[in-house]
Each structure stands twice: as C-alpha cells, then as structure tokens.
Computed example of a mutant assay.
Amino acid sequence: MLDLLLISVVVLGIGGVLYSYALYPFVLFVVAAMAQAKRDAAFVFKKQDRRKTRAQAQDLPHVAIVISAFNEERHIVERIDNILGLDYPADKLHAYIGSDGSKDRTAELMARFDDPRLHALPFVENRGKANVLNDLVSRVQAPIVVFSDANTFFATDALRRLVEDFEDPKVGAVTGELRLNGSGGDNQDSLYWRIEQFLKFFEARLGGLLGANGAIYAIRRELWMPLEPDTICDDFCVAMNVAAAGYRVVYEPRAWANEDTPEHIGEEYRRRVRIGIGNFQALIRHPEYLLKTSAATAFAYLSHKVLRWIAPHLLIAALLASAILALDSWAWALFTALQILSYAAAAAALAATNRGV
C-alpha cells in the first residue's frame, strides 16, 4: 500500500510538470482549434462580418495612461516623449505618471515637461507600485485606463489598436504584445517569450487569457478594483479581477511595445524570484480566479499557471518518493540517480551561464 502511494506521488509529480510544460501547449492548440472551428461554422451560417475597421478619431474613447516609476532617470524623458508623440487625439489622451519616492532625478526630469496631457506626480515617500497605482487610478476620469512601465515604449498606433476591442461590451481588458530587445545578442527571454506568445495567442482564442502583460494593457475604468498594498504581481491581479467579474480579457498582438531585456541573467533571476513569490500570493489570496472565472480561464489557469508555480514542489516530492522506493529496488535507485543528475546538470548550466559561457 505504501509503495502504491509513493509511486502515485512520483507519477503525479513528474506527470504534472511534463503536462504543464510539454503536453499542455498541444492540448491547448487542439482545444482552441476546435473552438475556432465552431465559431467559423457559426459565421458561415450567420453571414456576419467579423473584420475590424480602424476607428475614426471622433469615435475613439478618452484614454489615461498610468505609470508608476522608481529611479527611472535613464528612461523617463524618452518615455514621456513617446507617450506625447502617439497617434491619438490630443484632447482624448492623458498620462498619469507617479515617481514612487525615486532617489535619482526621475521627479526632476518629469517636472520639466509643460504639457496639459501630462500629470506628473512626484511622490516623496516610496510606497510600492500597488499603492502608487491605486493613487493614480483614483484620479482618472477616462473610461479606459492603460497600464505600462517607464522603460517600455509604445508603437505609434498602439493605443488605437488597444482600444478597438473595447467596442465589444463583453471585453473588459485588452493586453498588447511586448517585443523584447536583446542586449548584445544575449536575449535571455527569447525562447521562453516565443513559447509564452504561442500560449497567450491560443488561450485568447479559447477565451481563457490569463492576466496581462504589465508593459502594455488596458481595462475599463469601471472594472478597476484597488490593489492590496503589498500586491506583487499587479498586472496579473488587475486583469484576473476583470475576468472574475465576468468580462473577457483579450489579446491584441497588433498593439505592441518595445522593452530591453536584462543585460545579465542574475537580474532576470531576481525578477523571477520576486514574480514567483507574487504568484503564490495571488494563488492563496484570490481563489476567485479559479472559482469565478469561465471554464476556459480555469482550465488555462490550472494548466499554465498553477502547475508551473508548484512544479518545484512536485519535483521535490517525486524525488523523495523515488528515494524511498530506491531502498528496495535497483530500478528505482537508477531512476532516482537520473533525477539527481538532471538537477546537477541544470545547476552546472546555470553556473556556466553566470561565468559568461
């Protein structure tokens, strides 16, 4: 009985990780293809026009871009110029940028701009991004709020593309596409980012898009829910709050922005650790992301997010169970050794990468 339980731990642990990373993309592709085929068949019989038309200036909604900046003197001037130069009616665009107690010249550089569209708020105290976002959004009157970062730069027509999907009253949030610029040809996110874009595209087609890209996404102002002050993954929570409220979160790849990747993998490692903590925070704090969202969103959430978040725990449990089984079986001893070797190889690869190999 004990052996059966231990074997189940190994199979479920390793199987869950393999499913999330290797099998899920194929399952998602098939399910999304079936859903698309159903919509195509309905289109053929209903004869409705599905093509989007570019909105005219008089039809565009008022938009507010919200950015929390901390020690961004390197980017803030170029970022503000980027916003003010967007192809969007000047009387319908406002930007709310808050310096979150920056220790450099961010606040000073923001103050140099004299444009009625820019609302520069030099907060003296460092309160954290969630608090700054709560403060900034509370000042917004526009029906559409666009969130971004100080080191991100929008394509000229990004806003127009982003707001088009809000013509559908069922759409509550729209996330654009972030294009990463590698530094010195060492783009740490390249393969990962392509896989994530693949998953995002088909999850959106299925109606189960998860969260948003913090660099470029928008929501209806009426759906904003103030964030807990210690929220780490704010973009994920903001978009999932919209999904939990019964609205669709859609992906608009034509609305894109550029951002540089970290120059060193150490920076990316620290960022991922912080995001990992934020993931567990969201998992524990917001059960409604699983219980009150659509079936498609719940399916994607479990497969793409939750299983990945707990993958290390599943692998550790599988290793421990294998080690116990190895006490009485050479086959399990070999399997346990293979697991240990795989982790040792990963550690060696990381060490080599840190040395610049």
Rank of each mutant, 00 (worst) to 15 (best):
R205Q: 13
Y21V: 09
I219Q: 02
A352S: 10
W332S: 02
H62P: 07
A349T: 12
F113C: 07
R270I: 11
L28T: 04
V11W: 06
M34F: 14
M34D: 13
I144V: 10
A150Q: 04
A57S: 11
A95N: 02
G278L: 05
L314K: 03
E252D: 12
V306G: 07
F335N: 05
S148C: 04
A218W: 03
K38F: 15
L121H: 08
Q56K: 13
V137E: 00
Y217W: 10
N126L: 08
E125R: 11
Y217Q: 02
D114S: 15
I340T: 04
A212P: 02
P122T: 05
A111E: 07
L223W: 04
A245G: 07
L327Y: 14
D157P: 03
A218S: 10
T261N: 09
A33T: 15
M240V: 06
I144E: 01
I219M: 06
E259M: 12
L341A: 14
Q188L: 15
D186G: 15
A326S: 09
N181V: 14
N213Y: 05
G185E: 06
D235L: 11
W256R: 02
H304T: 10
L23T: 08
K305H: 14
T156D: 14
A282F: 05
I275Q: 11
L341I: 11
L86Q: 08
I277E: 15
F198I: 13
E108Y: 08
D81S: 12
A321H: 01
L2C: 12
